[in-house]
């Protein structure tokens, strides 16, 4: 999915030398990269390669053992995430960022209706008009291809693919600039996966989102991302444009990964 990205803009998020140890055990080591608006970065690797650790570090949910994450706020300031106060971090999380979990039950309030799920962020930033919140929720359900007449049903009444789309709507309703996705298509069947990926691609293009997507599925990476980082045992072993990495893998491990995809 080639798309020109202006290199002149300063990065939205920049990671420098990110390292995390759990006691003696390595989470991830010396990861550096940057990402700009409109760019999709895939982090691939097998289970235990440090992908999820990296995502938690980037989103400020885990403190790093070393290194830093710099973020350019809407005001244009470059801020170190570790130096943000809890209030600022939460504000970022409910306005400027989104987080799509693999397990929709973690990203949604399962006891609350779809409309309430989508509206939560709006209400958290001060929306106090029921009609406006509901209209916006309906609009977003429609945009993620959920029938707006099902707005009052709880996510428990939704299928797996719908839950995942609802999660996306809930995250995008405040027009964030950066979205983290942790295995967004995990556990979905192939046709549902394809629809979801299509949807994400369209929304990313429409909204100019920066997306960091963690996946072990190279097909997801190829469809969604502009760039790929391959991780193994907590380190980045290969990095580059998606097509280059997948068509001409350099590292032996990447070659193994690529060759393990079933070719139709």
């Amino acid at each position: 999915m080639p798309m020109p990205i202006p290199i002149s803009t300063p990065p939205l998020l920049e990671a420098r030398g990110l390292t995390k140890f759990y006691g003696d055990r390595l989470g991830c080591r010396d990861v550096s990269f940057d990402i700009r608006e409109g760019e999709v970065l895939a982090i691939v690797g097998e289970s235990g390669s440090g992908k999820s650790t990296l995502l938690s570090l980037l989103s400020g949910q885990l403190p790093a053992s070393a290194g830093e994450v710099l973020y350019r706020t809407r005001a244009g300031e470059i801020r170190d995430l570790a130096a943000l106060s809890e209030a600022e971090r939460r504000f970022l999380f409910r306005t400027d960022w989104g987080f799509v979990h693999q397990d929709a039950a973690r990203g949604l309030r399962m006891g609350v209706s779809a409309g309430g799920n989508v509206g939560e962020r709006l209400m958290a930033v001060g929306a106090r008009s029921y009609g406006a919140i509901r209209a916006k929720a309906e609009d977003w359900l429609d945009r993620v291809e959920i029938d707006p007449t099902r707005i009052d049903e709880p996510p428990t009444a939704y299928s797996g693919g719908m839950r995942q789309r609802l999660q996306i709507a809930r995250n995008l309703v405040t027009a964030p600039r950066l979205v983290f996705m942790d295995e967004p298509t995990g556990g979905l069947d192939v046709s549902v996966q394809a629809r979801l990926l299509d949807l994400v691609r369209r929304l990313v293009a429409d909204m100019g989102l920066a997306v960091i997507v963690v996946t072990h599925d190279l097909a997801v990476a190829r469809l969604l991302s502009h760039r790929i980082m391959v991780m193994k045992q907590g380190r980045v072993i290969e990095e580059g444009l998606t097509d280059r990495v997948l068509d001409d893998p350099r590292a032996a491990y990447t070659q193994l990964l690529v060759s393990s995809i079933l070719q139709p």
């Binding site: 409910r94 309030r109 609350v112 209706s113 509206g119 939560e120 962020r121 209400m123 930033v125 919140i133």
Partner: peptide, 9 residues
């Protein structure tokens, strides 16, 4: 925000 989610519901 959560308090208003309850009222919304």
């Amino acid at each position: 925000g959560l308090m208003h989610v309850k009222l919304y519901e």
